[in-house]
């Protein structure tokens, strides 16, 4: 056998060959699909994305709704139900919970050795992370739509209201709400990854993201109008991205300017809320995102660490 093969030239069957690798777009798709499958299989993801919003929504409406009614009427007018008022808060809270898990997946990959496995493969490194981010964006989009519909269902059950009373800007409003949650989520995805990359530890990542994000929801305009809250909370709320996320979603849903921390009149209507809030959220994205990218670069670099 072997003498024959030497005569005719070597047997180079298809065994050893350089890999062809993929285009960047294909790499993004590979990473995106992988994380999508992983997320769908993770019971924790289903819990934070679906079960938790339902629990919070129902509990808050039942408990706070009983006392918030008159406060609300005083602040925003008589025809706004607490369900409608609360929906933006639940939507933003769910986005927050989902975005905060972003770093856990990264740490998990590092602990499992998959991170290193990807690094020695021909996969494009930016594509590797971009695909993961996209899968989390997809999760936020789906989840936002579901929570939005859930809020409407609750409203119908309580008051029997029509959809345009719930979301006053209609179909364009749905797109707007989704876009805001994605931009809002981006900042917290970056934050979560920063914690993950600094701690390199799953428990620490879960702890530090929850520790910061859960109280942050309360020191914002999420549950009650800022005007009825203590002065120190109003001060903290100005620096709290949750305020801007909630305010812009709320402005879109109520179809009116609800900006709670400063007055703006240059853009007209809901834009007086949405434009400055989104600009501030993008600012958070740029700031936290650039730190996260820098840390990721360092984690993925081949320099001696």
């Amino acid at each position: 056998m072997s003498s024959h093969s030497t005569d005719k030239g070597p047997v180079v069957d298809d065994t050893a060959q350089e890999a062809s690798g993929n285009s960047v777009a294909a790499d993004i798709r590979i990473s995106f699909k992988r994380w999508l499958v992983k997320n769908l299989r993770n019971p924790y993801v289903i819990f934070t994305s679906l079960v938790q919003p339902i629990i919070f929504f129902v509990l808050f409406v039942e408990v706070f709704g009983a006392i918030a009614g008159s406060t609300l009427s005083a602040a925003l007018g008589p025809d706004i139900s607490y369900v409608t008022y609360l929906s933006p808060a639940i939507i933003i809270m769910s986005t927050l919970s989902s975005a905060a898990t972003s770093g856990i997946g990264l740490v998990d990959d590092m602990e499992e050795g998959m991170f290193e496995k990807m690094l020695v493969s021909p996969m494009n490194r930016s594509a590797m992370f971009f695909g993961k981010v996209l899968s989390e964006v997809a999760r936020i989009v789906v989840q936002t739509v579901i929570v939005l519909l859930l809020g409407y269902l609750l409203l119908v059950l309580k008051n029997g209201a029509a959809f345009d009373q719930y979301l006053r800007t209609g179909a364009a409003g749905i797109v707007g709400v989704v876009l805001v949650t994605v931009i809002f989520g981006g900042a917290f995805m970056a934050y979560s990854n920063i914690v993950a990359l600094v701690s390199r530890d799953q428990e620490a990542t879960i702890m530090f993201t929850n520790l910061l994000t859960f109280p942050l929801v309360f020191v914002s305009s999420a549950f009650l109008p800022l005007s009825v809250l203590p002065g120190w909370i109003r001060t903290v709320a100005v620096f709290n991205p949750i305020t801007y996320g909630v305010d812009s979603v709320r402005a879109i849903m109520l179809g009116q300017d609800v900006m709670t921390v400063f007055e703006m009149t240059a853009f007209g209507g809901i834009w007086n809320t949405v434009v400055p809030a989104v600009v501030i959220l993008v600012g958070f994205n740029v700031l936290l995102g650039s730190i996260a990218i820098r840390l990721l670069r360092r984690a993925a670099s081949i320099k001696v660490q």
Binding site: E18, A19, S20, G21, R34, V37, K38, R41, N42, E112, G113, M114, E116, K117, V120, S121, P122
Partner: peptide
């Protein structure tokens, strides 16, 4: 990277 396969000392698989 296109030319190699690398099996790390710590088992590296996607458990999910």
């Amino acid at each position: 990277r296109r030319s190699i396969g690398y099996m790390a000392q710590e088992t590296s698989i996607d458990r999910e």
